[in-house]
Design a protein around this nucleic acid. Structure first.
Lengths: 116, 116
DNA sequence: ATAAACCCTGACATTAATGTCAGGGTCAAG
DNA sequence: CTTGACCCTGACATTAATGTCAGGGTTTAT
């Protein structure tokens, strides 16, 4: 299928699909006219990419295990676990920071409201 | 005082001090030689700026109430409350998103570990 | 008077995925 | 054969605070 079809089937912009290909997340063959031709499997693949992106992984991280994950269960791909664990640590750090800021903001808001 | 002094007193880079001035957060007068001269009050002011930055506010938001806040209590500055409340909403949104991702990651990590 | 340590401005780089535009081919239907 | 709907590449823009470099003036101490 052509890139426009893949785009409308997945809801992912053509620009992003080209970017995924550039980053090695997606492959296509070129037709005589230079157009990209994607396999039907690409749809599933794009959804998988989007899913991992929604977990906050980078294209580079996704690229490191995508091929394996598309063929096997996640548990089968050695790369996956360390990346998930690292991401989890990052998120815990962010959660901590954000809660501290939240508490601080709430305190200040409260004290402003009391003072009025 | 000169910018280098202000920088070492506050731990904020010269580059950032110039940026704060550019964004209207900080003022200085120019000496005959073109050097910036800061008032002694600038030290406190820089710390205040850094504090609000650490809450995740932008220089633009800070600029909108900094002058008032430097002279009065926060409760006195009308601008402050809506900005704090908006930021709080933002943070709640981020917290929610991050916790969802965290849960998802934890589930996946667990299921990988079980499968090994 | 020279060297070290300041200061100045202006500009480009950083991050990461995506939007958007320009300039130009290709294809299909009328 | 023309028009509209595709496709291509390449490039710049986005965000926000900060780092860094170049090229050049100033001050201070020796």
């Amino acid at each position: 299928m052509k890139i426009g079809e893949l785009s409308s089937m997945t809801g992912v912009s053509i620009r992003s699909l080209r970017y995924y290909e550039e980053q090695g997340l997606l492959t296509s063959v070129r037709m005589d006219n230079g157009y990209r031709e994607f396999s039907p499997l690409a749809e599933e693949q794009v959804r998988t990419i989007q899913f991992y992106l929604s977990l906050g992984l980078t294209t580079e991280q996704i690229a490191s295990f995508l091929t394996c994950v598309l063929k096997n269960k996640e548990a089968f791909c050695e790369e996956v676990l360390p990346i998930f664990e690292q991401k989890l640590k990052e998120i815990d750090g962010q959660l901590l920071l954000l809660s501290q800021i939240k508490t601080n903001l709430q305190d200040r808001i409260r004290s402003i409201q009391e003072e009025r």
